[in-house]
Design a protein around this nucleic acid. Structure first.
Lengths: 204, 204
DNA sequence: TAGATTGTTAATCGATTAACAATC
DNA sequence: TAGATTGTTAATCGATTAACAATC
């Protein structure tokens, strides 16, 4: 359900860009494939953000959602693993726009440690603890190979990281106090393949 | 619910790697944070795969899930957009392992078209239609900037693509016959930030 | 046989939708 | 005022869990 908040936020930012001042639950829902009742219920859960007869003021609602999500400030983020994917993530501009700033980059490969990508020098994972504490970093993006993931996670947890965005295609062993969001690209493609096959059958 | 099938599949493949022949619904569930009843219900929906008193045979179940998901064969995939992220995705080995093979790479930037990455020559998007039809490609990975996404989508749909893995942080305008799975990295981080803040409050 | 574990039914829970009085 | 739209209640729907007879 909170994932819909992010979706609304993205759409509202788009609406602002094209100059819309207000939007109704039914129009916002139509754009996203969600019922109007769902949209209203989602927002009403967190407060009274709308205006009967008018709708929601986009600018105001953007601020409210960011406050709810906790992105009304900038979060420093640590990147773990600076291979192919890690480097691409370092260069991704979309994070900054939503309030995330990769401030630390780690690896364990001697061929990578010491190199600079996007103006950020890659540091050995062994030095994570003190740097993370110094910068008060809570979030980490884990972009290491599957076989190194759980080992890296121990270092992360010991360093005080409390949220992990996991790109490694394995189940992480974590204490309940650490949150994890997994992004498994092969899994996403599997979901897509399933949907395409099903859709194909429905059309027959 | 189908997303759990992918999760089970990944875990079962891991279990096979460490030499397990069979697994019970309760042990599999424990590993993934799912109840045993949920695991059994999920599988039973598609058939009778388990053995009372024994559990599920890992190898057999892997084959069944792959059949259900449609990944009991290799899917050729087209990559659209060969910038930072696109190049990283081209180099990602995880796709191949699950039955996806990027066979075509497209872009519109003259500085990128013609270059070769991972042994694949980047082709101009204008030539997509005939190549996609020649190779019978159904799936596309969309890794273009947000502002180009909906324009690119028109070309994809016209070429006969029926499933899109969308990395662009925008809502795509698509006919109902085309499936889409969205991966918005900033949205995932937002979910993580929310979870971390909530967790922090609960601990207080 | 006793122990383990499935598949399935019934009960519970939570999420979504419909409907409408209240409000601008 | 009439029209549009919210927030919320009640109804519906679907998904999850508990429990247990059937099975190996």
């Amino acid at each position: 359900m909170v994932s819909r908040l992010s979706l609304y936020l993205r759409e509202l930012q788009q609406l602002l860009r094209i100059g819309k001042k207000t939007i109704s639950s039914s129009k916002l829902g139509r754009r996203l494939g969600v019922t109007d009742a769902q949209v209203r219920k989602d927002f009403a859960y967190f407060g009274h953000f709308g205006y009967p007869g008018i709708g929601y003021r986009c600018e105001e609602l953007v601020l409210e959602i960011r406050r709810i999500l906790g992105t009304d400030r900038t979060w420093p983020v640590a990147l773990i693993g600076c291979g192919n994917l890690g480097q691409a993530l370092l260069g991704y501009r979309g994070f900054g726009k939503q309030g995330f700033q990769v401030e630390l980059a780690f690896d364990i490969d001697p061929a990578i440690v010491g190199q600079t990508f996007e103006g950020l020098k890659v540091i050995h994972l062994d030095q994570m603890r003190e740097l993370v504490q110094e910068k008060d970093v809570r979030l980490a993006i884990l972009a290491v190979p599957a076989k190194s993931a759980n080992q890296a996670v121990e270092t992360l947890v010991a360093a005080g990281i409390t949220g992990i965005l996991n790109f490694a295609p394995v189940t992480l062993n974590l204490p309940k106090s650490v949150s994890v969001v997994g992004v498994d690209l092969a899994m996403e493609l599997e979901q897509l393949a399933f949907a395409v096959v099903k859709q194909g059958q429905a059309t027959k």
